[in-house]
């Protein structure tokens, strides 16, 4: 079990010594997963709000799709995105295969159902009377959505945490559409896989600690935001 202790020490050494490659990998990880989380937040929160409140034909189908999408395996997403971005694929002319941009797109697809679905269930936990009350007080449509969003902000933050946690931890999609290209599209999870394959267990362990630091740091910061505003 010395392995774990050694890995932890090595992780600190890598961070403190300012290892250029490790820093660039960690930074790319944050950029790619952060961007994907942001996009899924911008798209997913309105989707979740709308699906929760609106009544329209095919709503149950959409809600079912969102709920099923929460469990979408990253490898499957990677495969589908790759099929589109291959040179001979329908979007091949964009030249996005094996780029960080393709990774952002794949991770957005992974995080979006999670953000939309958790937002939706947060809204549906509100008392149905609240909706009538807001409308009775004469709110405009914009004010209505704004107030609903205000009521479910804790749930939205939880959705963001879940989405970020999922994409920063996934490896299948990043490997498939990013290609794990050194200095270019290598993120923490794909480099951990590579180092395990090379037999560098201590380095792999150190990288996994760095992944945990980042993941915990971001989640902790979001938790502080979430809990600070809580009145009860």
């Amino acid at each position: 079990m010395d392995f774990i202790g050694q890995g932890f020490i090595k992780a600190l050494q890598l961070l403190l010594s300012g290892d250029k490659e490790v820093y660039s990998i960690a930074l790319l990880t944050i950029k790619v997963s952060g961007t994907a989380t942001l996009i899924s937040l911008i798209l997913g929160v309105p989707m979740g709000l709308y699906f929760a409140v609106a009544r329209f034909r095919g709503r149950e189908f959409m809600v079912g799709a969102v709920n099923a999408g929460m469990g979408l395996p990253p490898t499957v997403v990677g495969l589908w995105v790759a099929l589109f971005f291959w040179r001979r694929g329908p979007l091949g002319f964009l030249g996005l295969m094996y780029t960080p941009a393709a990774m952002v797109i794949a991770q957005t697809i992974i995080a979006l159902p999670l953000v939309a679905g958790l937002t939706m269930s947060a809204v549906q936990q509100l008392s149905p009377k609240l909706r009538l009350q807001i409308l009775a007080l004469g709110a405009s449509p914009l004010q209505f959505w704004w107030l609903i969003l205000h009521e479910v902000r804790l749930g939205v933050l939880a959705a963001v945490m879940a989405g970020f946690g999922r994409v920063i931890a996934e490896v299948g999609a990043s490997m498939a559409v990013g290609g794990n290209v050194r200095w270019y599209s290598r993120v923490l999870t794909t480099s951990i896989v590579l180092e395990v394959n090379k037999g560098n267990f201590s380095l792999a362990l150190a990288l996994s600690f760095i992944l945990l630091f980042i993941s915990y740091g971001v989640t902790y910061w979001l938790t502080v935001l979430q809990q600070r505003r809580r009145q009860v």
Binding site: K20, K31, T35, T37, W146, H150, R153, V156, R228
Partner: peptide
């Protein structure tokens, strides 16, 4: 609307991250 502030802060930070992500990602000289 002060409760919304946390979301606003969150969005701002993510926008900054996005802008940073648009910068160069390669470090090969």
């Amino acid at each position: 609307m002060r409760g919304i502030r946390s979301l606003t802060i969150l969005l701002t930070v993510f926008v900054i991250v996005t802008l940073a992500a648009c910068g160069p990602t390669t470090e090969t000289s």
